[in-house]
Design a protein around this nucleic acid. Structure first.
Length: 458
RNA sequence: GUGAGCGUAGCUCAGGUGGCUAGAGCGCUUGGUUGUGGUCCAGGAGGUCGGGGGUUCAAGUCCCCUCGCUCACCCCA
């Protein structure tokens, strides 16, 4: 093939104006509400030192990091080494999430507020295989609170994301809640070796998808003996009639340890505190919820809706991550909304309001000098209108057709001919109804609304 | 990484068992209509049929390889 491919790389996308309008609408809501909850925006570089990223996400995550080769001489030197290791060839990587860069920022700057509440909406990159709602470059919308172990931070973060979804029109989401320490205790209480913890959790996490039979089979494949697997499944399996209090009581008596009770009490406190906010009634104790990322230490969360296999977002407490940068440990909790997932579900459910970003008015002209046309356009723009000028001489019909074509979809055309120019006026034409009116240039913005509302002329 | 399916015009897609210059709708464009579009009529442009190889007198069609995309699994946002 001699032609150069014009497609973007697999898993990456171009966004055309229509798509941008939808993305901006959602991002706008997210920002508005995150700020209402007192979070401040930050941004960090797309590229981090590899040492910042490696070892934070578990083995699987390390595999999915996009690595950036050394440049020029450094690469040549690395290639000349006797036994070249993959690790020697790269020193930088694209960020895999927004949480680790935040932890680096917290460790780096000593003068941040004691309770740093930040949000961050930027793309991240993962080298895995694209699928439905999965991309190699995708946006996350993170909120985090650092510097406090108070469970109010959890409540705040969960309420903020619940409010975002609510304001976008979601009525049916569930926030699943679990605790990392509870998972560990469940694993050990049934006699599974802690070395198998991660493996067992992956299997357990699939309960909702593959059912009890499926989980038992999967646990067996992972070398966990039948009786232990059964016992673990007993702990995590819940049915819809079992409410949060019942699940909590059951786990407490089954595990019978103070540590377990502490974790359970934390989750209950989060749920109870949230009861007066937007997350009320949405939180559900899910003993099987595991989450893949390695850095969580306390409560963990995930938001799901029934018609999406994955999640709309997830988060949790990560009290040890900042300390991994070799400085003082700082407790933190955060949540990440997946922009692409939200957009996918909204698209499928038709949840977008009408969004208009193109020109409100296309200025069409007939036999008028371009400098005059431009002058009039500027006057309209000064009135606050979004104005596009038809740039070439053409028949009026063609200009009108263009103004109403896909991808422009201006609600109105303005006609500037010799007559209008002479009178300092424009002929406005509402393109949907055909209603038409000649008005002074200075009054176009004021008259436009009424004209667009006018009944169709025939 | 595993399994299945699909790649024909800018877009959505037709093209039984191989057979003339590869089609339709939409879109684009010219004219009918020297300042009124979205209807109608007549024309026009646009395709290495994803790429490479093979079988054949003959391949969009059959076979092999390859690339890309989609769906499911895996994992995740």
């Amino acid at each position: 093939m001699t032609q150069i491919s014009t497609k973007p790389p697999s898993g990456m996308r171009d966004f055309l104006p229509e798509e941008i309008a939808r993305r901006r609408y959602v991002i706008g809501r997210v920002r508005e509400i995150y700020e209402q909850y007192g979070f401040q925006p930050i941004e960090t570089p797309s590229i981090e030192n590899l040492s910042t990223l490696v070892g934070k996400y578990g083995e699987e995550g390390d595999q999915l990091l996009y690595r950036i080769l050394h440049r020029r001489d450094a690469l040549r030197r690395a290639l000349d080494e006797e036994q070249v290791q993959e690790a020697d060839l790269a020193d930088l990587g694209l960020r895999y999430d927004l949480t680790v860069p935040l932890a680096r920022v917290i460790a780096q700057y000593g003068n941040l507020p004691r309770f740093f509440k930040r949000y961050q909406i930027q793309p991240v990159w993962r080298a895995d295989r694209p699928g439905r709602g999965r991309f190699r470059e995708f946006y996350q919308c993170d909120v985090d609170v650092t510097g406090t172990s108070s469970l109010l931070a959890e409540t705040d973060v969960l309420s903020a994301v619940a409010r975002v979804l609510q304001s976008l029109g979601f009525e049916d989401f569930t926030i699943q809640v679990n605790h990392r320490k509870l998972l560990t205790m469940m694993i050990s209480s049934v006699g599974i070796d802690l070395a198998d913890e991660e493996s067992a959790l992956v299997a357990v996490d699939k309960l909702g998808k593959i059912g009890e039979e499926g989980v038992l089979k999967e646990l067996d494949q992972r070398g966990i003996e039948g009786p232990k697997a059964e016992a673990l499944l007993q702990l995590i399996a819940t049915d819809k009639t079992e409410d949060n209090a019942a699940i909590a009581a059951r786990l407490s008596s089954a595990l019978g340890s103070d540590k377990a009770d502490t974790a359970i009490a934390q989750l209950i406190e989060i749920i109870e505190t949230s009861a007066t906010g937007p997350a009320a009634g949405r939180l559900r104790l899910s003993p099987g919820l595991a989450r893949g990322l390695g850095y969580y230490t306390g409560p963990i969360f995930e938001i799901t809706v029934d018609d999406l296999a994955g999640s709309l977002g997830g988060g949790g407490r990560y009290d040890d991550l900042v300390g991994m940068f070799g400085k003082q440990a700082v407790p933190a909790v955060g949540f990440s909304l997946g922009l692409e997932r939200i957009l996918l579900v909204m698209e499928e459910r038709g949840m977008y309001p009408p969004l208009q970003v193109g020109p409100q008015l296309v200025l069409c002209s007939m036999g008028v000098d371009t400098s005059q046309v431009f002058k009039v356009a500027e006057e309209l723009r000064q009135q606050g209108l979004r104005v596009e000028i038809y740039p070439e001489p053409a028949k009026l019909g063609k200009q009108l057709q263009y103004a109403d074509s896909d991808g422009v979809r201006a609600p109105c055309a303005a006609i500037l001919g010799e007559d209008e120019l002479e009178n300092g006026s424009l002929t406005l034409k509402a393109l949907a109804s055909g209603a038409q009116e000649t008005v002074p240039v200075s009054e176009v913005a004021a008259r436009l609304g009424a004209l667009l509302d006018a009944p169709p002329a025939d």
